[in-house]
Design a protein around this nucleic acid. Structure first.
Lengths: 256, 256
DNA sequence: CGGCAAGTTGAGCCAGGTCAACTCCGGTGG
DNA sequence: CCACCGGAGTTGACCTGGCTCAACTTGCCG
């Protein structure tokens, strides 16, 4: 009989968000889950040790941003996917595939679970099962959307797409057009398959066109949502009240 | 009491492959499922009508190749993902996200299910649940891998990667190094985010280096698996017995 | 205040996109 | 049987978006 949530869950951002599966568990289920779980924390650039996958192959991200990094033979790196609060990763059969390495892109906290307890929850609690299923299909469609972004889009379009993705993925912080960019420029470059230099130039370009205003490296304000959406959808010259005509490139850089 | 499988499942390639969830159902479950299911068939280039998603939002692909196509404002197209036999698609909440269009890339047959019956199966049968879960995580990791391919790799590397993916995804037909390419060149180009011309040139290049032998448009033989793997992993000049030195580009095109 | 990592700016170049012409092949009809 | 057609794929020539390299600025932390 434990009507109040267990100690370690009480302030967990994942538990507090009703969108997540553990917020839908009954007290005794949650108690059992938390009793067998294993909290962990990782710094930026710290890789998650694969040795621990054996015992705790289920990861639930409670805060921060985790990246799945692929490394090519000659040193090129790619961040193939981003995982954030609420995402659940099942790494049980990942040994088969060349998965890459999980690295923190900011400070990350995780809740790691043994598969037996996790599966028991899913078997007994339909709400939890649906929530987890939902999260997994979301992840799949996100990855597919990301693949579509990378396949054909130009630098500016990819960046616009990413900014909008950040907005929709973190609605609570996105009030008044303000968007939080949770990762460094260089990681963003790896995620979007471009060079840090190009990312920088693209931010400048969007700003020069008046569609965004970069506030700091990790946040910006969207000044023209429809224009950004058009860019993201491949319209190379969306109607723009401020700067309607002519060269999109550097003519004058007199004022910031 | 139905010891033998229902009529419509008896010869279904999905049912006959023990890797798939419906092969793990009990006879009565299978009977109920098939009774409520809806078979469908689509030609190449035929789009799946979204009107029918309401009633039958769960698709199980029984044969052929289905592509998820994204369309940009100015007409650029991308095939963001490929789905093949055994893949299960849950399109219930796809209305929220800009999903794209499902099109046949060959003749495709589907088994469409209403969610209630499908969920009942998953609730009651742990084997089926695990199989479906497995398929979904596979799809997610495949999409992520594909994103990684698109992000940083060059044309030749993407194609090598795709050939190896075809091989591993269809092991039964891949005997003796023979690989079946299940889609047209133009669709392949859309999937890999390149132009048909570039796909053609890349095939020629791999052939000229002696790593593959194109038998027909839809099949080839791998002559040097390690070399292909090295290319796919970003080693731009893997050791090659035939053509060990110098320019990889057109110096002389005297003999085929 | 010094030192280092991260980000930005500039100049030059190349992989692959673009466009146009051509080949190949299966189907159709005279 | 051959002429014709249309779609798919291939080849060649040219051009450009973004990669590369190098120098510089900014911001953060001790």
């Amino acid at each position: 009989m434990a009507p109040s949530p267990p100690e370690q869950c009480r302030n967990c951002p994942m538990f507090l968000d009703p969108e997540n599966f553990c917020a839908n568990l009954k007290p005794d289920e949650l108690a059992e889950l938390s009793h067998h779980s294993c909290l962990a924390s990782f710094q930026r650039d710290q890789a998650i040790d694969a040795d621990t996958f054996e015992e705790f192959p289920i990861l639930a991200i409670t805060s921060g941003v985790l990246g799945l990094q692929h490394l090519l033979f000659d040193g090129r790196k790619t961040i193939a996917a981003l995982f954030m609060r609420g995402d659940i990763l099942d790494l049980r059969k990942s040994g088969n595939k060349r998965l890459g390495v999980l690295v923190g892109l900011s400070k990350v906290t995780l809740c790691r679970l043994p598969p037996q307890v996790f599966e028991k929850c899913l078997a007994n609690n339909p709400d939890a099962r649906n929530q987890v299923w939902q999260n997994l299909t979301d992840q799949a469609f996100r990855a597919i959307d990301h693949a579509a972004d990378l396949a054909n889009k130009q630098a500016l379009e990819k960046l616009a797409s990413f900014i909008l993705e950040c907005r929709s993925r973190n609605p609570r912080k996105s009030r008044k057009g303000q968007v939080h960019i949770p990762i460094r420029r260089r990681d963003l470059a790896e995620y979007l398959g471009m060079q840090p230099e190009t990312v920088s130039r693209s931010f400048k370009d969007l700003e020069k066109r008046g569609f965004i205003k970069v506030l700091e490296l990790s946040s910006l304000r969207i000044r023209n949502v429809p224009a950004l959406e058009q860019i993201a959808n491949g319209n190379r010259a969306p109607a723009d009240p401020d700067k309607s005509e002519g060269a999109q490139f550097n003519i004058l850089v007199t004022k910031t």
